[in-house]
């Protein structure tokens, strides 16, 4: 494998709150190669967005990276200066956020907002920006792009705003795209258009993609590799096919079973028993799943091997399924 586009190693993040320190991420490692799509999946609150924010250098002020590195080429994003980060963000790393409507400027037509980004990144002459903005609006499947370019965000549906955000993130043709739930809120045919667009850019310019989602079926369809997170830990990291055919972590297996794909009625759907542990607790066990796990052994209270980055199929469990 050539050198990865992004290499995250032992990333730990804490949040200070009035009621104690939230240990949101602990020793998170993964890497994504040029042109590759890596999915990060896991329950709500497992740390997917925090991982993305840490890499982008946009953590909440209460948050702090307590350890680790995130190498983009030769630059460690976690130690980079504000200037260096500004230079990289938007141009080399594009990000699609989870709440798109709030990220758009409510009083500026969407075509202008896209053109602004194109001009800021300076890859095209100012005079061509409006025309190029219209092309981008068309590319995310919005009809009548010429007239729609003049619309304000409130005149668009929820999913249309989301697609405008995606157009903005892709406008700079970044080398790394971090997409946080890019297609939740889109119907499946539009979702396919967007995912194809991302896929095309990946093969055309070798863009690496970190695709955060809670839709396992979509991750299965689009990612070469999947990282499973639980309560701030990476608990499994495997090539997609292996992950579904032979999940090794008990949590991964539960997650797959909780997908409403093929069951005949609602009662057959299982929810994963228990909840994520409170991450403010002093006495968090080494395996943060152990209090919910049915395969727990005596040994599980011993420190865990954390998922080794780069190994073909890594699992952080003392009693994995085989």
């Amino acid at each position: 494998m050539e050198s990865p586009a992004l290499d995250v190693d032992n990333l730990s993040v804490e949040f200070r709150t009035r009621s104690g320190v939230v240990r949101a991420l602990e020793n998170v490692s993964f890497s994504v190669a040029k042109g590759e799509t890596l999915a990060i999946v896991g329950e709500s609150g497992s740390g997917k967005s925090v991982t993305a924010y840490a890499v982008m250098g946009i953590l909440d002020p209460a948050g702090r990276v307590s350890a680790g590195s995130a190498m983009l080429g030769g630059l460690d994003l976690l130690k980079a200066s504000a200037d260096q980060l500004d230079n990289v963000r938007g141009r080399e790393i594009g990000m699609i956020f989870q709440n798109p409507r709030t990220a758009l400027n409510p009083i500026r037509p969407i075509g202008r907002q896209i053109a602004d980004v194109l001009i800021r990144h300076g890859n095209i002459p100012r005079s061509e920006a409006p025309e190029r903005a219209i092309d981008l609006i068309r590319s995310v499947g919005i009809t009548d792009p010429k007239r729609r370019a003049k619309a304000y965000p409130f005149e668009l549906s929820g999913g249309m705003c989301q697609r405008v955000m995606i157009a903005i993130a892709l406008a700079a043709r970044p080398t790394l795209l971090i997409a946080d739930e890019p297609t939740t809120g889109l119907d499946v045919t539009t979702q396919a258009v967007i995912m194809d667009l991302i896929g095309d850019l990946a093969s055309e310019i070798g863009m690496a993609t970190i695709f955060i989602t809670h839709d396992l079926a979509l991750a299965a369809q689009r990612a070469a590799r999947i990282v499973v997170m639980h309560a701030g830990h990476v608990i499994e990291n495997a090539p997609t096919r292996e992950l579904f055919e032979q999940p090794r972590h008990p949590y991964t297996k539960m997650l797959i079973a909780a997908t409403p794909d093929r069951v005949a009625n609602l009662d057959e759907l299982i929810s994963i028993p228990g909840a994520l542990p409170d991450l403010r607790r002093q006495n968090l066990p080494p395996c943060r799943y152990s209090e919910r796990c049915t395969r727990k052994l005596m040994d599980c209270d011993q420190p865990l091997p954390h998922v080794i980055n780069g190994s073909a199929h890594g699992v952080a469990c003392r009693n994995p399924l085989s």
Binding site: R147, V188, Q191, Q221, F244
Partner: peptide
């Protein structure tokens, strides 16, 4: 629409992809 639903079992990309320019709602 139905054929575009991703499924864990098949994992492949949809067979029936919508082609062509959608009509404008304006």
């Amino acid at each position: 629409l139905v054929s575009a639903v991703p499924s864990i079992e098949t994992r492949g990309v949809a067979k029936l992809r919508l082609q062509g320019e959608p009509r404008s709602p304006i």
